[in-house]
Amino acid sequence: MPDRENRKGAAKAPFFPERLVTGVVRLCGAVSTFLILVIFVQITTAVIQRYVFNRPIQWSDEVIGYLLVAMVMLGTAEAFRRGDHISIDLVSTRLSPPIARIQRLFSNLSVIAFALILGVSIWDSITFAYSFGSYSVGYVEIETWIPQVPIVVGAILLGAMAALRLFATLRGERK
C-alpha cells in the first residue's frame, strides 16, 4: 500500500479493481437511465394502443413494475458513486478532519452492511421461490424469482462501490 506522501501518484496509478468496478457501475447506471426512457416509451405506447387502436396493452402495468425494480437497483450504485444518496448532515459537516475520516469509514461500512443484508435476504427469497416454483398472477405469468434478480445485482454493485470508497478512505484520499 502506498504511503500518504505518495497518494497523488497512487490515485493516478491504475488500480485494477477500481477501474473494473467503476466501469461496471457506470455501465449499469447507463442501463438504468435507458430503462427510464423505456418506461416512458412503453407508457406512451400503451396510451396510443388504447385510444388509437382500442387494444390496451394488458401486460403494461406489470412490466412497468418489474422495470422500476430493475431501474432502481441498477442505478443505485451509480448514484452512490456520484454522491447522490442523501444523509442527515447536521453533525457530519462540523467534524474535525480526523473524526470526519472515521465518519466516512463508518458511512461506507454501513452501506456495505446494508448491501450485504439486502443481498443475502433477497438471495434467500430467490432460491426459495425458484425451488417452490411460484409464478406471478396476471397477464405475464413468469416465475417470481426472475424480477427479483436485479436486486442481487444492485446489492453487489452498491457493496462493491462502497468497498472501493472504504479502501480509498483507508488509503487517505479525501473524496
Binding site: 452512490f80 442523501i86 444523509s87 442527515i88 448532515d89 453533525v91 443484508i117 435476504s121 436486486i151
Partner: peptide, 30 residues
C-alpha cells in the same frame, strides 16, 4: 445523525430490530 446515507440508517435499524426480536433478517429483501 452519524451522517450515513438515510436509506442505510433505515435499513440497518430494521435489521437490528429483526435480529433482536426474530433472530434472523428474513423478509427485508421481500
Amino acid at each position: 445523525l452519524t451522517g450515513i446515507p438515510i436509506f442505510a440508517a433505515l435499513g440497518l435499524t430494521a435489521s437490528v430490530i429483526l435480529f433482536l426480536f426474530e433472530g434472523d433478517m428474513d423478509g427485508t429483501g421481500d
